[in-house]
């Protein structure tokens, strides 16, 4: 499984070394690029499995790199941002990035994000588009019947909760921004929609993660959005 090919786009040499060293130690194959232009070129010629993209590049804006790659490919992109402001992360996610890492990040964090993304890739490969079931750990969604079970027990979800869960499930492993979710569910993105979203997510999470030992299905990214995790 650890044979994924990763394109590392980072202009700062020590951080690039840290990342490549970590990747090498965990048997990933990698290629590197230090500018946005070369990143787009490498992505096109080598077609990597995952892109690790630093947003602060010397030549072009990281978001533009995402947009260009997205024009032909859905390859997972994990952005790395040094700024604490959420806005550039949100911009990158809305432009099509799958996940983000904030500097300073730990090696564990980096590896965890890669694993999440790989699982997402595996899930995408395993499921055909017309699949009428979704299985994630104990969670099972029967799209055709419109019913959700957790550990064989049927969950009673409101229509909105069900829609939310389906949206999250279809994008398992991907961080969805508040704006993206509210637009998908309500077609609008007012402040009140985002506040409602927080309440629905909180109640949905409580239904999914009832016990203290229950696995975490939905991850909250404060100020950014939510992500459905693939539970083994």
């Amino acid at each position: 499984m650890n044979k994924a090919r990763i394109l590392v786009v980072e202009d700062d040499a020590p951080v690039r070394n840290l990342i490549t060293l970590t990747l090498k130690a965990h048997e990933y194959v990698y290629i590197t690029a230090s500018t946005g232009e070369s990143a787009v070129l490498e992505a096109a010629s080598h077609n990597p499995d995952i892109v690790l993209l630093d947003l602060g590049l010397p030549d072009i804006d990281g978001v533009e790199v995402i947009e260009r790659i997205r024009s032909w490919s859905n390859m997972p992109i994990i952005v790395i941002s040094a700024r604490s402001e959420d806005t550039d992360k949100i911009r990158a996610l809305d432009a099509g990035a799958d996940d983000y890492l904030t500097k300073p990040f730990s090696v564990d964090e980096l590896l965890a994000r890669l694993r999440v993304t790989q699982r997402r890739l595996a899930l995408l490969e395993a499921s055909s588009p017309g699949e009428s079931f979704y299985v994630n750990g104990q969670l099972r969604i029967d799209y055709a019947a419109g019913c959700v079970t957790l550990d064989g027990q049927e969950l009673h979800l409101t229509p909105i909760e069900y829609k939310l869960l389906c949206l999250m499930a279809r994008n398992t492993g991907k961080v969805l921004t508040h704006t993206f979710i509210t637009r998908s569910i309500w077609g609008s993105s007012w402040d009140n929609d985002i506040a409602s979203l927080r309440v629905f997510m909180a109640t949905l999470r409580r239904k999914l993660e009832s016990g203290p030992d229950a696995p975490q299905y939905i991850q909250t990214h404060v100020g950014v959005g939510y992500r459905m995790l693939k539970v083994e």
Partner: peptide
């Protein structure tokens, strides 16, 4: 400012 579920904030 925005409304936030307190439990999630504590967890985070």
């Amino acid at each position: 400012l925005s409304p936030q579920p307190v439990a999630e904030v504590l967890e985070e």
